[in-house]
Simulated scan of single mutants.
Amino acid sequence: MGEIVTVTLNAALYVTYEVEALVPNATHRVTAVHHRAGGKGVNVARVLADAVALSAAVLSPVAGTVDPAAYLALSQET
């Protein structure tokens, strides 16, 4: 099949904290932390790759300070 390439000028790192239960006015302990690369271009590539079974690549130019966790999360996508 075909290939798609998206250009993501402002990639993001989504961080999700998992807790057992949300209780108002209580202290919550995090049981797990999940990191996932995101941003419009990343999300479009992910959806198209899943929906149409295309091979997807994301190009994200780097300038300034970069959080390595965002690029690690993106590189671990299959």
Results as ranks from 00 to 15, higher is better:
Glu20Met: 10
Ala57Asp: 10
Pro68Lys: 14
Ala70Lys: 03
Ala21Pro: 02
Val33Phe: 05
Leu13Glu: 08
Arg36Glu: 13
Val66Met: 09
Met1Cys: 09
Val5Pro: 00
Ala63Ser: 14
Leu72His: 12
Arg29Asn: 13
Val19Glu: 07
Val62Ile: 12
Asp50Ser: 09
Gly39Thr: 12
Glu20Tyr: 06
Val15Cys: 11
Ser75Asn: 12
Ala73Lys: 08
Thr16Tyr: 07
Ala56His: 08
Asp67Pro: 00
Leu54Glu: 07
Glu77Ile: 01
Thr31Cys: 09
Ala32Arg: 10
Arg46Lys: 10
Lys40Thr: 10
Val5His: 00
Ala11Ser: 13
Ala37Asn: 01
Val58Thr: 04
Leu9Arg: 07
Glu3Arg: 09
Ala53Cys: 08
Thr27Val: 13
Ala32Tyr: 02
Thr8Leu: 00
Leu13Ser: 05
Thr31Leu: 13
Ser75Tyr: 11
Ala56Asp: 09
Ile4Cys: 03
Glu18Asp: 14
Ala56Arg: 06
Pro24Ser: 12
Lys40Arg: 12
Thr65Met: 08
Thr16Lys: 07
His28Cys: 08
Thr65Leu: 08
Ala70Phe: 08
Val42Phe: 05
Glu3Met: 02
Thr65Ala: 10
Glu18Asn: 11
Ala12Thr: 12
Gly38Thr: 06
Met1Glu: 01
Ser55Leu: 07
Pro61Ala: 06
Val5Asp: 01
Glu3Ile: 01
Ala70Trp: 06
Val44Trp: 06
Ala21Gln: 13
Arg46Glu: 12
Ala32Cys: 07
Asn25Tyr: 09
Leu48Met: 15
Tyr71Val: 05
Val42Gly: 03
Leu48Thr: 02
Leu22Ser: 06
Val5Asn: 06
Pro68Tyr: 09
Ala12Gln: 15
Ala56Pro: 00
Glu18Cys: 11
Ala32Glu: 05
